[in-house]
Amino acid sequence: MSDTPYLSVHELACARGERTLFSAMNFQLGTGQLLLVLGGNGRGKTSLLRLLCGLAQPLAGEVRWRGQAIGAAREEYHRSMAYIGHVNGIKDDLTPMENLRLSAALAGRNLDEATATQSLIKLGLERCLDLPARVLSFGQRRRVTLAGLMTAGALLWILDEPLTGLDIHGVALVEGLLRDQVTGGGMVVMTTHQPLSLDGVATVPLQVGPLLQPDED
């Protein structure tokens, strides 16, 4: 764990329509840390992640990357960050391989076929390499997205419910990916409603909204 706060949030506030979801939020994240965003449905977890990656604008406050507002450091920030949202961001008409290579090219990276194949095989998609993504199941598409994340080599991962639709093996795979990322000096900000076993990973919990009672939600 290092002291350099790569990602820091200052007095962040977010509103959806008339309702304030959270305000005066402060935290910072250094290398080798995983920030687990907790909170019930509709408490603003997704909104927070979208603010963090710059897809949405905060009501007040600022998100900073290495001390600079992410708007000002946009190019550098986007180069070191990878985001997975609720939707997978893969095209139905393209094969997993084409999807990976195109998204890499759009992010300004060059991804050769061997590396792409390797990551797809690692995520258990060896039988789907040549199929259009349209015929894949939801979980398999999620795996394609995760393969993209793996090849992106980003310092910071922002993951919104990455476990949705994955089977037990898939969840174990993601746990492995997260562990590799964090122990390798990367950072992760993620939300999930599923239990994760991340032994030995520096996990920082962050509660959004009131604490969830067992009988609620």
Binding site: G54, L55, R74, H78, Y83, G89, D92, S103
Partner: peptide, 14 residues
């Protein structure tokens, strides 16, 4: 927009 690839393209450094 629907399949999320627009988001990803907007997150490109370009």
């Amino acid at each position: 927009y629907r399949d999320g690839s627009l988001e990803q393209m907007l997150l490109s450094p370009e």
